[in-house]
């Protein structure tokens, strides 16, 4: 009896790893962990119904997921990855991605031009843009410039993104510009952060930590991407999104197909669906992602909250992924030598 139970349990254990293969095809998608309830409702579940397949989600921040992609290079488990543009370029250079057959994407022509081939070689397509700025308690401080992050009222009350997040290089580039820096190692920004590091509450790894820190009054200000704004707004406190005089930073997230994926067709269908007017409109209306599809029409209040419209998109000063990557060793070394120690 006991032996049979154990055999049964063991067999069940072995099977779970491969169970999906037996009935339906499985598409494994790697995404940022934020707003998963919205994606599930507006993207994963409708897609599952359409394709008759199972969508399995891996969630995490960009660097963690890149590390996993690299570790599993010989036996890739992920089919499609949604990730920051420069991280995708890094992955492409490491031979982890395969080109997208844009002919298979019915919605390709509807994308803003900068989203069509942001990495070159058709390695990825952009699915959303976002701005990056400072959120702050209007009753406690005023923020008019990136330099205001280090004002006395924010000593011990400010959180910045960890160097491993996608927001960190954007912060460094904007802060450096504000401080009059001109070198690609972001030296001035790193020196300023290093000089004030004792007054920074934490370097967060996930933007979702920010509303918690706000709620507990650990912080009065933080640097975040626009995608974290909806959850920060829910905190019952006077919190605003700053428009610094030096401008806001920004970035693009892209979709790419992992090299060695066994579901290439399904992967194309999924990407195409994600870029469709229908899905992009729903996700935009939930204030999760700004649309990369030109045909998406939004009401004014939604449009205000997002990075929306041809003019806005044209004015985005995105850092070129190649520039960011080429100089990464320099600013990483600066950060590790001065801030992290």
């Amino acid at each position: 009896m006991l032996v049979r139970t154990i055999l049964g349990a063991t067999a069940a254990l072995m099977l779970t790893g491969t169970a999906h293969a037996a009935d339906k095809p499985t598409l494994t998608v790697s995404v940022f962990g934020i707003s998963q309830d919205v994606y599930k409702r507006d993207l994963y579940t409708p897609f599952e119904a359409k394709c008759g397949c199972t969508v399995v989600i891996e969630a995490g921040n960009a660097s963690e997921r890149l590390a996993k992609l690299e570790a599993n290079k010989a036996n890739p488990v992920v089919d499609v990855t949604a990730i920051a543009d420069f991280v995708a370029l890094d992955a492409a250079k490491k031979g982890l991605l395969q080109p997208i057959d844009t002919g298979k994407l019915a919605n390709f022509g509807k994308l803003y031009d900068i989203a069509k081939d942001p990495l070159g070689d058709k390695m990825a397509v952009g699915y959303t843009f976002y701005s990056t700025s400072i959120v702050y308690r209007t009753d406690k401080v005023k923020i008019a410039s990136w330099k205001d992050l280090f004002q006395p009222a924010l000593k011990g009350r400010v959180a910045l993104p960890n160097i491993a997040t996608t927001q960190a290089p954007i912060l460094l580039s904007m802060l450096d510009k504000a401080l009059g820096g001109t070198t690609p190692d972001y030296g001035k920004a790193i020196d300023a952060i290093a000089a004030n590091k004792g007054d920074i509450v934490t370097f967060y790894a996930r933007g979702a930590q920010v509303p918690q820190l706000m709620e507990q009054e650990e912080i009065f200000a933080a640097v975040v991407g626009r995608f974290d704004w909806p959850s920060i707004r829910k905190v019952q406190m006077p919190i605003a999104w700053a428009t610094p005089t030096e401008g806001m930073g920004g970035g693009m997230n892209v979709l790419a197909i992992v090299k060695g994926s066994k579901q290439v067709d399904l992967a194309h269908q999924f990407i195409d669906y994600w870029l469709s007017e229908e899905v992009q409109t729903k996700i935009s209306n939930a204030l999760v992602d700004s649309p990369a599809n030109k045909d998406v029409k939004l009401a004014d209040d939604k449009a205000q909250a997002l990075t929306y419209g041809a003019d806005t998109v044209a004015s985005l000063k995105l850092i070129k992924p190649a520039d960011l990557l080429d100089n990464r060793e320099k600013w990483l070394a600066g950060w590790n030598g001065k801030v992290a120690r």
Binding site: L13, M14, T16, G17, A71, N75
Partner: peptide, 13 residues
């Protein structure tokens, strides 16, 4: 590193 990835074993195992 030395069992799952080289042998391509499933996560559950």
């Amino acid at each position: 590193r030395f069992l799952l990835v080289p042998l391509g074993l499933p996560v559950m195992l």
